[in-house]
Design a protein around this nucleic acid. Structure first.
Lengths: 139, 139
DNA sequence: ACTACTATTGATAATGATTCTCAATATCAT
DNA sequence: ATGATATTGAGAATCATTATCAATAGTAGT
């Protein structure tokens, strides 16, 4: 039994063609692991698969609910989705080419907890997105 | 000449009734200085002002372009606007009551610069939003 | 492998926030 | 006050996303 099939079964989703294909796309090892629904829809089209856009949205939302993927909102743009590898990280986005890189910084994480505590909050989540010009685009 | 009138003149916008009224709302000293377009539209309605929603959006966008206000996107919600007081800060949002508080932390700021540098980026902007339960809501 | 039950899909309509269009109106320099 | 030009209000248009619903596919039990 293939990996994708297992993942789906594990989270209680039936193994259907759209789900398997979308999961495969998300698992691709590309230079950008962040996909919009439209992105995925177009990749499926190029592959000759006949899967509706509504299904792509539905499946991505189900994957999010199941914890298989994480949804992000960079700037004011559309939702983008990435496979959830279980390791928390934040993002830096190139404002020119759109490249998204991940990073994790202990000091920032600890500091956030301190800030929340000082203000009397129980911290449940945070979003830290850095925006700038990547090494290729800054020239 | 009133304060609002000055602000508008300074950024090269004609002094019109909608602009003055919207600016006054944004300048209110309330416990939440973050307004959605709809918020402002409703406040205007309650005040008996007959200003269209399209105008509210237009004026807020003009204020943003002029640097008078800053637009934020918390979670996946609508745009919210706050008066730009010139001092950079980040936000912590209560996921229950929606309260928004501001904070500034030097250590986080410095750390962000370091992270960007390490990854080869020129940092132009960042968004740090913390989410949690505020002191009133955590009980 | 076959059936039957139920979940899933695809196409399209609906939604909600925001922006656009355009004729009517208001602002401001003269 | 007048005229040139910017702004407004109302409603249409847009865009991403979600809901609807009849047709189809997955799966457990035989």
């Amino acid at each position: 039994m293939k990996l994708e099939t297992n993942n789906l079964k594990d989270v209680g989703l039936k193994v259907t063609i759209p789900r398997v294909k979308i999961l495969k796309i998300l698992e691709q090892e590309t230079n950008n692991k962040h996909f919009s629904a439209e992105n995925i829809f177009n990749i499926l089209l190029d592959d000759g698969d006949d899967i509706g856009l509504a299904t792509v949205y539905r499946v991505l939302t189900q994957f999010e609910t199941a914890g298989l993927v994480i949804r992000h909102h960079f700037e004011s743009e559309n939702s983008v989705f990435e496979l959830n590898n279980g390791k928390h990280h934040d993002h830096i986005v190139c404002i020119k080419c759109g490249k998204v890189e991940e990073f994790f910084d202990d000091i920032v994480e600890i500091r956030q907890q301190k800030i929340a505590k000082r203000l009397g909050y129980i911290l449940t989540e945070h979003h830290l997105n850095l925006y700038g010009l990547c090494s290729s685009c800054k020239n």
